[in-house]
């Protein structure tokens, strides 16, 4: 569990978060503090509540008990848009408009996040994740799952938010894609981002600063064996 000092210096801090579904406590007492320039891994069995914890930290769900604070301010006191402008989220699905091209998707998301990007920067971001120039203007409906995930990673790489929450970000990626993901996380950490990754694939997470296992609704420090 994070100490009181860690909680005070954290960018994002979840305190004794609990969440119940149909009478069962999925999360019971989960406490997590994220420092700037750090990569935190949350791991655990299927159904342990990793995605739920990340959704609560992204403001997409409300906890039934406990609280989440962003720079010392409770989510309950913040506008959801204010949370979104500080916390970037990549869920199980790539969150792309399938009838738009990769370029249009990234231009749209940067505008929605209040940080409109020029086309040249978007194309550079797509090139950096291995999306070919010819594919940048095709609807992403025709992309494979892996290419859609790469597009979502390019959007993440451009995200200005200080906290990044990634739920199974290696889904659908080949070995090259996983290397690109590792590079994006490394660069983001160098630039001061506080990153949380919930994953079963640990091959790209060698550089993580903290490992937390989610079991019986609570987080305990420790790496998988």
């Amino acid at each position: 569990m994070p100490t009181a000092d860690e909680g005070e210096t954290a960018v994002l801090c979840a305190r004794s978060v609990g969440w119940a579904c149909e009478g069962r406590w999925v999360l019971l007492d989960a406490t997590l503090a994220l420092a700037p320039s750090s990569v935190t891994v949350v791991w655990g069995a299927n159904g342990a509540g990793k995605s739920t914890l990340l959704k609560i930290c992204a403001g997409l769900m409300q906890p039934d008990r406990g609280s989440v604070e962003l720079s010392g301010r409770d989510f309950a006191d913040l506008d959801p848009a204010a949370v979104a402008s500080r916390v970037a989220w990549l869920g199980h699905e790539p969150a792309l408009y399938l009838d738009l091209s990769a370029t249009e998707n990234l231009l749209l998301s940067s505008t929605l996040m209040g940080d409109p990007q020029p086309v040249a920067r978007v194309l550079a971001a797509l090139a950096s994740v291995g999306v070919a120039v010819a594919d940048c203007h095709r609807p992403v409906r025709g992309f494979s799952r892996g290419m859609q995930q790469r597009t979502a990673l390019a959007r993440m790489a451009m995200a200005p938010q200080s906290v990044w929450l990634l739920d199974e970000p290696a889904t659908g990626l080949d070995a090259d894609g996983v290397r690109i993901l590792a590079h994006i996380l490394d660069t983001a950490r160098v630039h001061g981002r506080a990153i949380v990754v919930a994953s079963h694939d640990f091959s790209f997470l060698g550089q993580a600063d903290a490992w937390w296992q989610l079991r019986n609704g609570a987080l305990t420090a420790g790496q998988p064996r």
């Binding site: 997409l60 506008d79 959801p80 848009a81 869920g91 792309l96 408009y97 996040m113």
Partner: peptide
Amino acid sequence: SADEEAGAWTLALRSIGGP
């Protein structure tokens, strides 16, 4: 329907202008 596909709904809801 376009927003529900591939989870794009979350992206639109989390815009800086809210829903």
